[in-house]
Amino acid sequence: MTPKIRTYHEVDEIESSLPGQVAEAEGRVGARLASVERIVGVMSGKGGVGKSLMSAAIAASLARAGRRVGLLDADLNGPSAARMLGISAPLREDEACGVEPARSASGVRLMSMALLLDHDAALRWKDPVDAGFVWRGVQEREAVRQFFADVDWGALDVLIVDLPPGTQRLAELHGLVPDLDGAVAVTIPGRASVDAVARSLDLARSRGLPLLGLVENMSGLACDECGALTPLYEAEGGVDLAARFDVELIARLPFDRRLAAAADKGAIDEWLEGGGRLAEEIARIASRVAPGGERP
């Protein structure tokens, strides 16, 4: 009679498990972030609402105020922070310490897939088998993990994570960074955006993820001459969302052609230098993100 074969859990003489390696790799994220005082995600369920511009402007505003700021561009397929901050490759690396983040003129430390890809090239993965859908999510999560763990962020007051569009993104970030301090949600007033952002906020709430507040972007078009605001949408999505989810509406920001042009030219720092009411509003949002800002 064949003797009983021990089960998987009864065999533990040699430890080289794949789950163990995954846990060890994720542990390196925590070790790297030990010198980061605050980690904040900037999220939106909807693309095209100005989330990345908000992330870059908040980061630059904080850096100009003397804070040590990192910006992790987690939008691997549509990275834009490097362009907005006027940063380009190459990156330096030290075998022992990690990859040095690129730096903007104001001192924002940035890591972005844009710094790693050929100009205009899409992020394409090596697929020995045409079944990328099976492991695409794993590859992307692993890439973001390496952005956290393998970058020599140094001591930071705040690390801002610019999340890609998608309802699940904040929850995914929280899975990777359990010590996440909170998130700022960005919407535009229109109903299509509100619907998507509402789903993101609902998921965040259901998981108990901390929300620092809501920013309504493109609330109107500001006149270049007198500053008078012309509404761009009939809806007041930010106000509605804030009431429905009991989240503070931190700011309602107009579309500003000069800021948009500055972001295109990688000149957000210069735009902030010029001051003005919108720059002050962004500084106010930034103060909520920085250490000492209100936590829920």
């Binding site: 490759a89 899409a122 394409r124 390496q146």
Partner: peptide, 20 residues
């Protein structure tokens, strides 16, 4: 550093890193 990214990304730039 970035072992997974460097191994798995097909469109990585030859100018991404300075020779250390």
């Amino acid at each position: 550093n970035f072992e997974g990214i460097r191994s798995e990304v097909a469109t990585g730039s030859e100018e991404a890193f300075v020779e250390s």
